[in-house]
């Protein structure tokens, strides 16, 4: 049905089907609206520095220590991964983005270590459950890197080497 100007939906007055002229034109409300926008405009022109906007790439917000950013794997003192490939993280992961292949380690006190440890960052929902689940504090999400970009899907799948060396300045494993 084409637009109807007489249909029941045309009655926007609320009180009966007939609206008074000023109401139909919304004149009073228009001026009130103009006042509100003008107030905002002028306030912001004269107090530009007080605007809540952050100059994002230049100014970074402080997300605090609870920010869950790109994962990293912690190292032992000798530089080998702290991870023992127990797969708690991949078990608890709700998006099933962690895959680990375990292997035997020759060292008697280590016994088991990850052969591969890959995280599909595209699948990851950054819930942080893997960090909660890890019994060895081997995986953390405290790099502060949350602008994750790449030009192919493959590059979002990060491996053991990447995760072991994934740190930001100021955060040392």
């Amino acid at each position: 049905m084409p637009y109807s100007i007489h249909g029941p939906q045309a009655a926007t007055g609320g009180k009966g089907s007939r609206m008074r002229g000023a109401e139909l034109w919304y004149l009073k409300e228009i001026f009130r609206g103009m006042y509100v926008t003008a107030r905002h405009f002028l306030t912001n022109v004269f107090h530009m520095a007080d605007m809540p906007t952050l100059q994002y790439p230049d100014e970074k917000p402080n997300y605090g220590p609870w920010l869950r950013s790109r994962h990293r794997l912690m190292k032992r003192e000798d530089g080998t991964p702290r991870c023992v490939a127990c797969q708690m993280c991949s078990t608890v992961c709700p998006s099933d983005c962690i895959s680990i292949v375990a292997m035997e380690d020759d060292r008697p006190d280590v016994e088991k270590r990850p052969e591969t440890f890959t995280i599909d960052l595209l699948r990851c929902v950054y819930c942080g459950m893997c960090v909660e689940a890890c019994p060895c504090d081997a995986i953390r999400m405290d790099t502060g890197i949350f602008e994750i970009a790449a030009d192919s899907r493959e590059k979002f799948v990060v491996d053991l080497d990447f995760l072991l060396n994934n740190t930001t300045d100021g955060v040392k494993p």
């Binding site: 023992v84 490939a85 127990c86 708690m88 016994e111 088991k112 019994p135 060895c136």
Partner: peptide, 9 residues
């Protein structure tokens, strides 16, 4: 109690 590396888990 080394369950993380124990295969019986």
């Amino acid at each position: 109690v080394d369950c993380p590396i124990c295969d019986q888990v």
